[in-house]
Amino acid sequence: MFNFLRKWFSRKTPEAEVETRPLSPEEIRVSHQMAPLPRREIGQLVAACSQSIGRQRELNEDSLLAFTSTIAGNKSNSAFGLYIVADGMGGHQFGEVASNLAVRVVASTILRKLFTSFLDVNPKAPDQSLREIIEQAFAEAQRVIQREAPGSGTTLTVAVVIEQQVTVGHVGDSRAYLLHPGGHHEVMTRDHSLVKRLEELGHITPEEAASYPNRNVLYRAVGQGDSVDADIYTFSLAPTDYLMLCSDGLWGVVPDEKIARIVRESATLEQACQRLVDAANEAGGPDNISVILVRWVG
């Protein structure tokens, strides 16, 4: 579009060209924007993910899972997705074991309870609510981690997407974001970190929080404490939105505005994920980086 405008104006008189207002950065960005995915007959989820150990750690303690499915046919069309990011706790033994166990246990619990209902010959919604199933999955992960890797812990952010409805279960300081068109974004989870708590209580300002020394101290993690109390939220995913799950290796290093810009300016979800990981590494890559991006198209 930019080139087109230039061509158009070059044929005009010089005076007219003088009057032409240069395009603002926002307008230029529009031309680079990720092309809207083509409209499809059936609604479905598309997702991509990426992960990196970073530049300063010797061990990858992050785990992720991305599961996207569509069932289409005469009876009905259904989209189902399960996306998980877990960040094993540094300084603990077996952080990578904890995050891996959490992802596997939660995924198997949720898929067994939910996805098999999809595959049933007479599809019927499960008689438990998603909230209850996610609570059970977290409790199961807590139990298994305490048995298999005692003393360790992990963050756990789980998004179950059914059609356009997202339900997130969350413990720790990995995050779920909704990136809206036009550049604004919402953090859909609440960090269970000491620094966020101090900020919520008004003890420190967001600016102070950004440079707070013990930024990675969590007050809630799966595997720690007697029981795990997951935050569970449900919200809908508009066709123009991106759902992003990531560990603090991304959001703690790359500013939110830059994250939103990279996603908007990438041609595909895969490219966006790779560029996000690259951006975190270019900023020093102090921690493991995990990211999942999801869109609903239909």
Binding site: A125, P126, S129, I162, E163, T234, S236
Partner: peptide, 27 residues
């Protein structure tokens, strides 16, 4: 509201359901 249905029953529960599939989000 959005993509979810909300209704109560005489069983004392307010249900939240995904509208296309009928999957319960919370009660």
């Amino acid at each position: 509201v959005g993509q979810a249905l909300y209704f109560p029953s005489l069983d004392g529960i307010l249900y939240a359901m995904e509208a296309r599939t009928g999957w319960m989000l919370w009660r």
